[in-house]
Amino acid sequence: MYLFSARDIVKRFSNHLALDKVTVNVPEGSVYGLLGPNGAGKTTLLRIINMITAPDTGSLYYSGRPLRQADIVEIGYLPEERGLYKKMKVGEQALYLAQLKGMSKSDAMKRLKYWFEKFEIQAWWDKKVEELSKGMQQKVQFVTTIIHNPRLLIFDEPFSGFDPINTRLLKKEILELRKNGATIIFSTHDMGSVEELCDYITLIDRSKTILEGDIHEIRHSYKSNIYELGFNTDPLGVINKQNGNFEIVERHTAGTTQYVKIRVKAGFTGNDLLKKIVPEIEITSFNEVIPRMNEIFIKVVEAQNKK
């Protein structure tokens, strides 16, 4: 069941096509990554999902029916370019933003108290935003994004500008939110966080979707039969004896251990490789190499650019 779907979205600005028939289906309870190079159209898509801008053509569905303006109260949005009223007090501002999302004042107060305590920022309640550091402001912004318990959370480049501590906090909270039933869409350049957090991804390049699906399936589909083995002695002689069925693609040494990545020719498996090597030499580790999202990203985008 999809919580949110955008189908065949087209958005044209005066001199360029920002989105060209992009379709995104976000399953309920998942973390959905929106990837793509700068200027690919990610922010435009996120703004369309938030109903800040309207698509030229295409349709949006929420909970299985067309998206309505009233659904906005179930969405929480943290834009890439985020800010707060500088002259306003933190608490007052958080309360205001929560009420704009349709919360009653007393509910908003209760929830804010909980989150301010959780993030240990109660002491800032009466401070003006301009007195806060950037990291502090980010915490406040995050709280105001999730305060109304949204079913759908949208983060645009959430980790950009966050220090490692806040990044870790944010990742933890994102996973916690999902555990509590929220669905999360976020756009990012940080492929590490994609592998860590995402269940599904869509890769957009030059206004078009070029890759999409379950992140594990995608990574497995880009496997190229490579295994990494660890040895305590030099394995070269043994491997080179195998009639070219197993090819060394990369090797490096860490301490006394040598790691070798070996590509297994078509028709052979990891087991075949082990059978050949185990009798000859001691193996300390063995695992299949699953491509990193980073490699897949670069590979796919570059292939697209060549077209």
Binding site: R47, N50, M51, I52, Q69, I72, V73, I75, Y77, L78, P79, E81, R82, G83, L84, Y85, K86, L97, L100, K101, G102, Q141, T144, T145
Partner: peptide, 12 residues
């Protein structure tokens, strides 16, 4: 101050 995008995600 870039607050505007946050606000227009709640109101038109």
């Amino acid at each position: 101050s870039r607050i505007v995008e946050v606000i227009v995600s709640s109101v038109t």
